[in-house]
């Protein structure tokens, strides 16, 4: 548990929750990233514009922390290119079919006690944990040191 960072997790999580509160109170929308990102391509006019603005903001806000804050930002990925492509396809398809991902169901849905989101989060957490168990402990793929 030496990689456990509770304070930055609570602070960063707080910023995420504040963004979700802000979007619903100002624009009346759910801050679900899969829905917003997909809508950049499928929606038209104003519906497309605000979604594009949100996605741009997502990158800009992240860039501000990466380049201006002085916080050390690590990206430790051991997935191969085919693995990343398969994972991306599954995450994209599954989040649309299941009407949401870790943000829309995980933060917004649970915050409003949506029964659909509670079930969705349970299903994707358990599925992902089983995948990690199989990859790491059955197939024996090495973990990050």
């Amino acid at each position: 548990m030496n990689d456990f960072t509770p304070y930055s997790a609570l602070i960063g999580g707080g910023l995420i929750g504040l963004a979700a509160s802000g979007l619903v109170l100002l624009a009346g929308r759910i801050a679900g990233i899969s829905g917003i990102a997909a809508g950049v391509f499928s929606a038209r006019g104003h519906e497309r514009l605000w979604r594009a603005a949100f996605v741009l903001g997502l990158v800009a806000g992240a860039a501000a922390i990466v380049h201006l804050s002085g916080i050390k930002v690590e990206v430790r990925s051991i997935a191969t290119v085919p693995g990343l492509i398969l994972a991306g396809l599954l995450v994209g398809f599954g989040s649309r079919l299941g009407s949401g991902c870790t943000s829309g169901h995980g933060i917004c849905g649970i915050a409003r006690l949506s029964p659909r989101s509670l079930v969705a989060v349970g299903v994707f957490m358990v599925t992902a944990a089983i995948v990690v168990f199989l990859v790491r402990h059955v197939m024996g793929v090495p973990t990050w040191p």
Binding site: I11, A19, V59, V66, I71
Partner: peptide, 9 residues
């Protein structure tokens, strides 16, 4: 704000 939060956390 969301993007900043994701990196910070």
């Amino acid at each position: 704000l969301f993007g900043a939060g994701l990196v910070v956390s």
